[in-house]
């Protein structure tokens, strides 16, 4: 009985954790950032307060928008939660993890982005179109790079199933693989671009010359904005977990072993906290780059990922 219930229990635990831990991670990053800039922080729980404030606020729609605009927050949220149920964050033995392999996972994130860009053009102002155009510029360069990067990992484990990839890495002896090093570097660069962090995009700016993601969601308010903000936090969390699952999976609970759960939770918290520190360091030392420097940045990531794949074919 316990054996049958275990995967389902892990699955629900993981979904709840993604929903709760994502705002915590963002709160952690913001808190660190405040400290590093010598400001007093609002605490690690501030994102929860922001979200609950948005949920009770009135929803205001622009005059012209159609059903695409109102449906988008729900679709974005749904796709992100589904992605959260698939990535092996706590355990490699999730019933839903076979639903989509890494390629399908990238495509599930693409659904969210596709609708977000459509909603932005739905408003009928220059801001929305600008945001959509820029976001798609970034993603059209980042998506091939992210695929190349995870392909390299999947070549190592000769599988594209995320659980299987994590399992292979943890169960094989630790060797330094040049292909994985390249792929990891590329993945970091892409994760920064995909989650809209400095130096690609600044999540806290509303200056029209520089904003990408914020330009798209400018017209959202109330619960719609809350859903989008929440899924955005989850996206950051999920990209961090995806990086952990594909490159540093040690600590993720194996199959049928409930005793490993506390260890898995602890390891995850530790790794995410480190990821948060890493993000803060980058955001503190770097300035946001010009929009048209972004293709060079992402082109570099793409090159690194392709190099990783080539080195797997040639060296390993």
């Amino acid at each position: 009985m316990i054996n049958e219930a275990y995967p389902v229990f892990m699955e629900s635990l993981q979904v709840i954790m993604v929903l709760v831990a994502a705002p915590l991670l963002v709160g952690w990053i913001r808190m660190l950032k405040c400290w590093s800039q010598g400001r007093t922080s609002a605490g690690i729980f501030q994102p929860f307060r922001d979200l609950s404030k948005l949920f009770i606020k009135e929803t205001v729609l622009a005059e012209n928008v159609s059903w695409i605009f109102t449906a988008t927050p729900y679709i974005v949220f749904g796709a992100t939660v589904l992605a959260g149920a698939i990535i092996p964050i706590l355990s490699v033995d999730l019933p839903l993890s076979a639903t989509a392999d890494i390629i399908a996972l990238v495509a599930i994130f693409a659904i969210a982005r596709f609708f977000m860009a459509l909603a932005a053009t739905d408003i009928g102002t220059a801001f929305g179109g600008m945001g959509a155009s820029r976001e798609m510029m970034v993603s059209s360069l980042a998506e091939p790079a992210v695929l190349m990067s995870v392909f390299t990992v999947s070549l190592v484990s000769s599988s594209t199933s995320l659980s299987h990839m994590a399992h292979t890495l943890t169960s094989s002896p630790i060797v330094l693989r040049p292909s994985l090093a390249f792929a990891f570097l590329a993945f970091v660069l892409i994760a920064i671009a995909e989650t809209g962090r400095i130096p690609v995009d600044n999540p806290s700016t509303h200056l029209e010359l520089t904003m990408i993601h914020e330009a798209m969601i400018l017209e959202y308010s109330g619960r719609h904005l809350a859903l989008i903000e929440w899924s955005n936090m989850m996206k950051l969390f999920l990209f961090a977990s995806l990086g952990i699952a594909s490159f540093f999976p040690w600590g993720i609970a194996g199959a049928d072993n409930i005793k490993m759960l506390p260890m898995a939770l602890l390891a995850l918290a530790l790794k995410l906290a480190l990821a948060g520190i890493f993000v803060v360091v980058i955001e503190t030392v770097l300035a946001k780059m010009r929009v048209f420097r972004v293709p060079e940045f992402l082109g570099f990531a793409f090159l690194l990922a392709t190099l990783g794949m080539l080195s797997h074919f040639i060296l390993e």
Binding site: T121, E143, P144, M309
Partner: peptide, 25 residues
């Protein structure tokens, strides 16, 4: 594989343009 991935991403961009410019706004 890299070029196929690039094609897929650019196709999404292309169809957002089609739909966004023709049907939305």
């Amino acid at each position: 594989a890299a070029l196929v991935a690039l094609t897929g991403a650019l196709a999404a961009r292309c169809y957002i343009k089609v739909y966004g410019v023709t049907f939305l706004g």
